[in-house]
């Protein structure tokens, strides 16, 4: 366990540092870091503290929470296709966020934006769980997810098209694909409370998920309250996905790819997969956010483009594997 943990931690630290050092301003690494830490009040300090630091922190937080949410949902549903983006939780969170922005609720009090996204995520997640049922197979889960995603995406587009703001309609892409460009520490502070709450909730479900691998009856016999486990996972996932989507849009596939890659490395134990996926998710989103800056520095390429390019082939591979397993 410890070797994997150390390796993942080193990877996250290296990517976090790279994220701080790469950007269109193109400054020397040593100079940048001293401006970040010492802070001489010059323009480079402004760039490091107000632009790159928030961006790197958000990539770390959101990536970790998406990885964690993916691992928890897959453990609970015992289905490798369960992922917040694919089953429409991120899309519903985006709808909640867009509604609160366009109605002016987000301007009324600080936490209105993440709370609305949380509400959207809860409704989306509740719908999918109700449609697919607790024992729903892969097919029903994915179908329910497609229905909820499509509905949320259509309503988000509708709200943005109805907005009196001429820029709103072009932001449909942002809400569907996600981006960390031009975020500030304000956004970190907006996302932090809910994300921390959700993270703690999800970190507590490891024992329950381990027990659940033996089946629901065995888990019940081991003293696991399945209804409470379900409630914790739904709330935790909605918290982290809602908070992340509110500030960065819906970023897909992180929660699918990361647990899938790490599962063999942790001996397929859900409790160990939780923390490993959190670290792995942070690494993946940091890397994706570096990639969008390196490939098209001036264009704000969306994060979802990169994560989908990595994730979609893997998704196909998973479907093929599930099909052969059934036969």
């Amino acid at each position: 366990m410890s070797r994997l943990a150390i390796g993942l931690c080193l990877l996250v630290i290296a990517l976090f540092a790279a994220s701080l050092l790469i950007g269109p301003a193109g400054t020397a690494p040593g100079e940048s870091l001293s401006a970040l830490i010492a802070g001489d009040g010059g323009p480079l300090t402004l760039v490091m503290r107000e632009i790159r630091l928030p961006r790197a922190i958000l990539a770390l937080m959101i990536g970790a929470s998406l990885g964690l949410a993916g691992a928890a949902m897959q453990g609970y549903l015992r289905n490798p296709l369960a992922e917040p983006g694919l089953i429409g939780v991120s899309g519903s969170a985006a709808l909640g966020a867009v509604l609160s922005l366009q109605t002016g609720l987000a301007a009324a009090f600080a936490l209105a934006l993440p709370l609305s996204a949380l509400l959207g995520a809860l409704i989306g997640m509740g719908l999918v769980m109700a449609l697919a049922g607790p024992r729903g197979g892969s097919l029903t889960l994915i179908l329910a997810g497609i229905a909820v995603s499509a509905l949320a995406a259509a309503l988000t587009s509708l709200v943005l098209n109805l907005s009196p703001n001429p820029f709103a309609a072009s932001e449909i892409v942002f809400w569907m694909m996600g981006s960390l460009a031009d975020r500030s520490l304000t956004h970190v502070m907006l996302a932090l409370p809910l994300m921390a709450l959700g993270g703690v909730l999800l970190a507590l479900v490891g024992r329950g998920l381990d027990a659940l691998t033996l089946g629901e009856d065995a888990a019940g016999a081991m003293g696991i309250d399945l209804r409470r486990l379900r409630l914790t996972i739904v709330t935790g996932t909605a918290c982290v996905v809602g908070a992340g989507t509110a500030v960065a849009g819906a970023i897909g596939f992180v929660g699918l790819v990361v647990p899938h890659v790490l599962r063999p490395l942790v001996g397929a134990r859900p409790s160990r997969l939780l923390w490993a996926s959190a670290l792995g998710g942070a690494a993946m989103l940091l890397a994706a956010d570096i990639a969008v800056r390196v490939i098209l520095p001036a264009r704000d390429l969306k994060l979802g483009v990169v994560t989908a390019l990595v994730g979609a082939p893997l998704f196909l591979h998973l479907i093929l594997k599930l099909r052969t397993a059934r036969i």
């Binding site: 107000e50 301007a107 907005s163 703001n165 001429p166 820029f167 932001e171 031009d182 500030s184």
Partner: peptide, 18 residues
């Protein structure tokens, strides 16, 4: 413009404000 947009949020960014 009225209504909210992420595009215009950039005006509130601490860098622009500074």
């Amino acid at each position: 413009y009225p209504g909210a947009s992420r595009a215009e949020d950039i005006m509130d960014h601490p860098v622009v404000q500074t």
